[in-house]
Simulated scan of single mutants.
Amino acid sequence: MFTGIVEHVGTVIEIHELDKSASGGGGWSLKIGDCEVILTDAHLGDSISVNEFEKSWFKIGLAPETLRRTNLGELKVGDKVNLERAVSAGIRFGGHFVQGHVDTTATIISKTPDGNSLYIKMALTDPSYIKYIIPKGYISIDGTSLTIIDVNDAEAWFTIMLVAYTQEHVIFPLKEIGDKANIEVDMLGKYVEKIVSGMLKGDSEEAGGYLESIVRKYVDSRGKT
């Protein structure tokens, strides 16, 4: 579990589409450097350090599902990446509940300066996720917890705003129009949808749902009067 508050920006120093080393496992891997500051208490198997790490770098393996859902397969040596360690007890929770499980990507379609702030408009690669995005709600973009400004459900786009401090501490402002970013919608919306859907529709057509049971009780009560 993460907060979406970026601790440090690292640099991609190696990419292997077929990593045959012991830690690569014959799959796609990335090596991230310039990140000694967040590896002081890292261990093999941690969320940020999956396969291998040294004093100032760590290696991650990318499964096919990860490559399909994220923009990590498009990274190049020298690109910057946001880094955050998993949340620990006893810290201020400054962002929102971020799992680090990317749902889809979104493409930047406009960037508009407003004083020292920056408005960015993005279109979802998978429009079905727009139902989980609401104005003033949370969203995770490349691991950064951000607040949504506007949402267009019909066209599946949304806007966010970056204040000056955020622009200086995350990789998002480095992206250009047409670039993609990883998107994780607020998981609370998905839980609510599943619970409410089950109540209204039921587990099966035979069982019915909560709404159907209320209607039946009302009809039965009217029939007895």
Rank of each mutant, 00 (worst) to 15 (best):
S21Y: 04
I133D: 02
Y218R: 02
N82P: 03
L83G: 12
E7P: 10
I48Y: 00
T3I: 07
R216I: 14
V12Y: 06
S145A: 12
S221W: 12
I195E: 15
E205C: 09
G209I: 02
E212A: 11
E84V: 06
D150Y: 00
S23T: 04
I15Q: 08
S140Q: 10
M187L: 10
S145I: 02
P113Q: 05
N51K: 01
G26W: 05
L75H: 06
N116K: 02
T70A: 01
V219Y: 13
P113H: 07
K111C: 07
L18E: 09
S204D: 07
K80R: 15
N71T: 07
T40E: 15
E184G: 05
V163D: 14
V37F: 04
K180F: 06
S221A: 12
E212M: 03
E155H: 00
R216T: 14
G94H: 09
V185R: 07
G208I: 14
D220N: 15
S110T: 03
D34N: 13
I149P: 00
T147W: 02
V102P: 01
W157T: 02
M122G: 01
G10I: 11
I214F: 11
S128Q: 13
G178K: 07
T112Y: 05
A154V: 09
L39R: 04
N182R: 03
D19T: 05
A86P: 12
L200Q: 08
G26L: 10
E74R: 08
L72A: 09
L72I: 04
A181Y: 08
G33P: 15
K224D: 08
K131E: 15
G24S: 08
V50T: 10
I134E: 10
V9E: 11
H16A: 13
L83P: 11
I183P: 10
S56C: 14
I32Y: 01
S47D: 03
L18T: 09
A164V: 02
K194Q: 14
T104W: 00
G25L: 05
F172D: 12
C35E: 05
N152W: 07
